[in-house]
Design a protein around this nucleic acid. Structure first.
Lengths: 338, 338
DNA sequence: CACGCTATAGTTAACGCTTAAGTAAACGTG
DNA sequence: CACGTTTACTTAAGCGTTAACTATAGCGTG
């Protein structure tokens, strides 16, 4: 079918091994032989069969990535960051989406495991850590992204979610909000961390914890908008009505803003809103949305670097936690006289 | 290292081939032996090494996808569609981003080729077809997505761009616009097709072709917003000013709307705007944006199905062109008394 | 009861590459 | 000039599978 080392070796009257060595820049090859081989390799546009190489070396030069949803810009950006770093080291990336379905995620883990990838990167939708057992059992290095599990000692790269909640809430405080509500996410680590940060900030600024001021966006990410819309309507029925809302993510925040506007109130004059994620269209929204930037590309890049680091050594080093710093991006939805 | 067929065979006192046959549901295996093997396979959580299998069968059960930009929702959705179909047939997807860089795209093609993938899917940023030569030479089935090349007879799946331009322009006409401008994209097939459709619609509705009414968004997709903003400013300096604008894509349209609003005009009362892509946040924009839906997920699904079809036969069937039907999604930016 | 048939296995050789070990020739050294 | 050393290669073995044969037993059949 396609050209092999054997073909090249026979044509040139050398052994297969000689060709192999030339291609891997092995030292003990004569200058002239090396040139002859390289010349023929170029002429035939030969590329070694990586499946064969993987079989004997045990390294596939491929990493696997499982995300809940490729369309979500956060994960798309993380993937882009990973891809950029891995490309430099000639690694490829097998991407698979779990569609926010824990069962599907487990299947994908199994599938990727049987490909003997060098490492796995997972932004998990699992609730428990049981699904990671097969990975641990097979001694495949892996890194969790974005969402972490307290009871699982493994590599993790993500944003410092407590800090996210803290700086978002503090920002609302600094623009004059005193009745700050929170539309939280479902019970994953990111939601818990941001809630924790929100609470810490309230305490720090000596604001009371009001009853009903924390509501949960009920549904999964795919339906964040309506989730935010409904949650905000719940908040609008409270007395006193909040004057600032920190939302778990941007789609929820957009839904919340739409609910506020639908109720005849103004953003940010009556209620200021801040989201999280800093989606790149935030500035073109009906009310340009203030947000917490999650440095998604950076998360991807750091994850990829960590991956390369843990692949190298024979015995994997002990798990590392990489926390990225969030930052506030101020737009109209919180821009009002302090 | 990890469990192999050999281990299982030895433990059970059968030959490796027997194990292999059981796993591939080969018929000539006794009921009892089959059960014994399957039992042990499950106990050990054994999964065959796909690299080894790929080496001998020549099929990697992996497809490659190259897109200009993973973060762009269109490509993310296409990838999701592809992924969904391929998953059902136990195929994996190696995704790689060319970052809108033709040179990088060529490198990625080379990289994917050396992995002996079963097929390639490419949404290309190339200007010429030269970059596809290596793929053709190696007889790897491949499918172009979204952007096509008139001088290359190959498989293609994408939207009917002429129709896109036609129905967008016709929609503007139907809401009362009589001076319809077009902010076109750079010289790829999609831009050309949409322009063609725009022209056809003008003719059909007996509208004059006005000088300067077609301007080009200069830059690449990554900077579409400012591109649309500037292009719209150009249109605003014309006399007469357009009363409707069909934009090559949604980010450009968002930029255009921002420019119109910045000039103190209203959307859609003074100028109606329609984009293309139907990004899922369109409804939450400052002015909710009418758009042409490109059925991106469907494009991905159809592409994946085509892929599975052309992989099967020994000799590849002749190239097919699959054109998806676009449709108008009406929102505020064109909602005005006809 | 020898025959071929069927069901159920096993044997052998490859897939394309890498790794380790081996070797022949040329070279330097005391 | 016998000895080790270096250079430049070759040979052999094997990575974990599968494809294509081959082998054996049990069985009905004419």
């Amino acid at each position: 079918m396609s050209v092999t080392m054997k073909d090249i070796a026979q044509e040139l009257g050398v052994s297969i091994v000689t060709v192999s060595k030339v291609l891997r820049n092995h030292e003990d090859i004569g200058e002239e032989t090396r040139k002859r081989v390289l010349k023929r390799v170029r002429e035939l546009n030969y590329h070694p069969n990586l499946a064969a190489r993987a079989l004997v070396t045990g390294k596939s030069y491929t990493a696997g990535l499982i995300v809940p949803d490729l369309v979500h810009p956060f994960f798309a950006e993380v993937a882009t960051g990973i891809s950029r770093i891995l490309r430099q080291k000639s690694y490829s990336l097998l991407i698979s989406s779990s569609q926010e379905d824990p069962e599907l995620e487990k299947q994908e883990i199994a599938r990727l495991l049987s490909r003997r990838l060098d490492a796995l990167l997972i932004a998990s939708t699992q609730c428990t850590t049981a699904g990671f057992r097969p990975i641990v059992d097979q001694h495949i290095p892996f890194i969790l992204l974005d969402r972490s599990f307290p009871d699982l000692r493994t590599n993790f790269v993500g944003i410092d979610d407590v800090k996210v909640g803290k700086i978002a809430t503090t920002h609302l405080f600094s623009v004059g909000c005193r009745r700050i509500a929170h539309i939280r996410g479902v019970a994953v680590s990111t939601a818990i961390g941001r809630l924790e940060g929100y609470s810490q900030a309230l305490t720090q600024h000596r604001l009371p914890t009001r009853h009903g001021y924390v509501v949960t966006g009920r549904s999964a990410d795919s339906d964040s908008w309506s989730s935010g819309f409904q949650a905000m309507n719940q908040l609008l029925r409270l007395d006193p009505v909040p004057d600032g809302v920190f939302c778990y993510n941007d789609p929820i925040a957009i839904g919340a803003i739409d609910a506020i506007l639908a109720a005849g109130l103004r953003v940010p004059q009556d209620i200021a809103v801040i989201g999280c994620g800093n989606l790149h269209f935030d500035k073109s929204l009906r009310v340009p949305l203030s947000s917490i930037d999650q440095q998604s590309v950076t998360i991807g890049e750091r994850a990829a670097k960590l991956l390369l680091a843990i692949i190298k050594p024979k015995t994997p080093p002990r798990p590392r936690r990489v926390l990225i710093e969030p930052s506030v991006v101020v737009r109209d939805s919180t821009r009002r006289p302090g």
